[in-house]
Design a protein around this nucleic acid. Structure first.
Length: 282
DNA sequence: CACCATGTTCCTTG
DNA sequence: CCAAGGAACATGGT
């Protein structure tokens, strides 16, 4: 489930379910996801604590908790590539790769992650190095331009740098560049002011549209029936029963560019796939 | 068997 | 200190 929009949708889904609930017990099935926190440290801190707020920063979830008579503290969650978080009744089947289970009384919170790349930890230092939130006023064209100027890397690769702007991942990097009509191969520092401006705007637009789209779809957070690929489809305006593909270039190599019909190309940069239209993107 | 996958972090080199 | 490149992490789908 993981770029900024997916995490935002998850945060909105979980917040009302978690707030006010108290953790009765903690079960850690894969201690690796707590790193560098130990099982003991997590248990000691979480058992008896109540959720008081849930925030998102970049692709991270920040769970604010508090125990009676003690100070507030924060737990950090990240979904890695394959993580999910959801609530379920006790007795419901646990997924094969359940990494952490929090007993909330009537319900339990499950963090499962097939590849265990994600985290659920007391160490919140990762958020310190994040760049501005793309939707906030802190994400300025001037600041973005300045950061791009310092890099000789291809702009697509640079967009994945979370210190530049927080939350853009491999899918939306390709999508934003397509919409801004900029080639993913361009050196970050070579972009003209107008191009930086277009890219800045399209990053904001593509992420916001994804959040809006995700909000209207009945998502299956537990992932038992459907796959979360569903998230990448938008509800078609006039046909309520099927989902129209929403991504314009990602994972569409060989398919026609939505603008000019030229086949979409796939390129490997920094060991990640990039998709683009060689005709529309210069 | 081969290659691919929504991400971050660590290590090395310059 | 910074930028950049590459491997590592781990499991599953095609």
């Amino acid at each position: 489930m993981p770029e900024l929009p997916e995490v935002e949708i998850l945060a909105r889904h979980l917040a009302p379910l978690l707030l006010g609930k108290t953790i009765r017990a903690v079960e850690v099935r894969r201690a690796k996801v707590l790193r560098p926190t130990s099982v003991k440290q997590l248990e000691k801190k979480l058992v008896g604590a109540k959720f008081i707020q849930l925030r998102r920063r970049g692709k991270y979830l920040l769970f604010d908790l508090k125990k009676k008579g003690e100070g507030q503290f924060t737990c950090l969650g990240h979904l890695g590539m394959t993580g999910r978080m959801f609530l379920q009744p006790h007795g419901a089947g646990l997924p094969k790769h359940a990494a952490l289970i929090l007993d909330l009384g009537k319900l339990r919170f499950v963090y499962e992650d097939t590849r265990y790349f994600g985290r659920f930890t007391l160490d919140t230092t990762s958020v310190e190095s994040l760049g501005p939130e793309p939707s906030s006023a802190d994400f300025t064209v001037a600041g973005f331009a300045l950061a791009l100027k310092r890099s000789a890397q291809p702009v697509k690769v640079k967009l994945l740098d979370q210190s530049l702007v927080a939350g853009v991942g491999n899918i939306y990097a390709s999508e934003a560049l397509f919409r801004a009509k900029i080639s993913p191969r361009r050196a970050a520092r070579s972009l003209k002011r107008e191009e930086v401006q277009r890219l800045h705007e399209q990053i904001r637009v593509v992420l916001q549209e994804a959040i809006d789209s995700g909000s209207t779809i009945p998502l299956d957070f537990a992932g038992e029936k459907t796959k979360d690929r569903l998230f990448y489809f938008g509800r078609a305006a006039n046909a309520p029963d099927y989902y129209e593909e929403r991504l314009l270039v990602y994972d569409r190599s060989g398919k026609p560019c939505p603008t000019c019909r030229t086949p979409i190309k796939r390129l490997v940069q920094a060991a990640r796939s990039t998709f683009y239209c060689a005709r529309c993107q210069r």
